[in-house]
């Protein structure tokens, strides 16, 4: 059972990762990553890490990647136009990747080839994770609160559209048009006016302009 599950979900993860690499539109890359995360969650279950498996789904797939998808939608990110330096980057990228992979795989096969992994070999209970978090790992756990504070502050500082000191737009008009408010923007770290105020013009695109761009303009 274990090998079969490993190969199925490892294969899904692999396919997702490769798809992530070859897809050119960011939205498909993001969704491939969601698939990878789902498959990894199953592998985590196989490795006895229940809590991590579900946190992987809730936090990674359900929150972080949703944020990505949102931003991709808001920025209307599409296939980027090819540019000169792509070739150079690929010339560096392929050998670097290959070298690193061969190195790592070689080491792993040699060092850990004989260590078996079996289902139920080691199961981490959720309660044990909680215990460790508040005893052994108390300091890192508390320090992450600073990390979050930095994250929230930074996101709001960079992305929130600040009302200018004097010329704040009357809130009611914006709200009536169904435009996300500051609170939502802070929650999602997206610009509140991105849809309503036609702030973001899509990057120059050769093909016909999709309807989202128009939606952005008409929101007000």
């Amino acid at each position: 059972m274990h090998p079969a599950l490993f190969f199925i979900f490892g294969g899904i993860a692999l396919a997702g990762a490769i798809n992530l690499l070859v897809q050119r539109a960011p939205i498909y890359s993001a969704l491939s990553l969601v698939a990878v995360m789902g498959a990894l969650a199953v592998l985590f279950l196989l490795l006895g890490a229940e809590f991590i498996a579900f946190i992987q789904i809730i936090v990674y797939a359900g929150a972080i990647m949703v944020l990505f998808v949102f931003v991709i939608m808001l920025l209307n990110a599409d296939v980027p136009e090819p540019t000169r330096r792509s070739k150079v980057a690929q010339a560096i990228g392929y050998p670097v990747m290959a070298l690193l992979l061969v190195e790592l795989a070689g080491f792993f096969a040699a060092a850990f080839g004989a260590t078996p992994v079996r289902t139920g070999g080691y199961l981490v209970q959720v309660a044990a994770v909680g215990q460790a978090l508040f005893h052994e790992f108390l300091l890192p756990f508390e320090v992450t609160s600073v990390l979050f504070l930095v994250g929230v502050t930074g996101a709001v500082l960079l992305a929130a559209r600040r009302e200018e000191r004097h010329g704040a737009a009357p809130r009611a008009t914006r709200v009536h048009a169904g435009v996300p408010t500051r609170a939502m923007a802070e929650a999602l770290s997206v610009p509140p006016n991105a849809m309503g105020g036609a702030v973001i013009e899509p990057a120059p695109q050769p093909e016909s302009e999709p309807a989202h761009a128009r939606a952005q303009g008409d929101g007000r």
């Binding site: 274990h2 090998p3 490993f6 490892g10 993860a13 692999l14 990762a17 490769i18 992530l20 690499l21 890359s29 990878v36 592998l43 490795l47 980027p80 090819p82 540019t83 792509s86 980057a89 690929q90 560096i92 990228g93 392929y94 670097v96 990747m97 690193l100 992979l101 790592l104 795989a105 792993f108 096969a109 060092a111 850990f112 080839g113 004989a114 260590t115 078996p116 992994v117 079996r118």
Partner: peptide, 26 residues
């Protein structure tokens, strides 16, 4: 039953695909 190295090699592959994506993506 699977050797640990399988999981690790998968992890290395994912990591390296990420590295490649970092260089290739525009």
């Amino acid at each position: 039953m699977i050797p640990l190295s399988y999981y690790l090699i998968l992890s290395a592959i994912l990591f390296c695909i990420g590295v490649a994506g970092f260089f290739f993506k525009r």
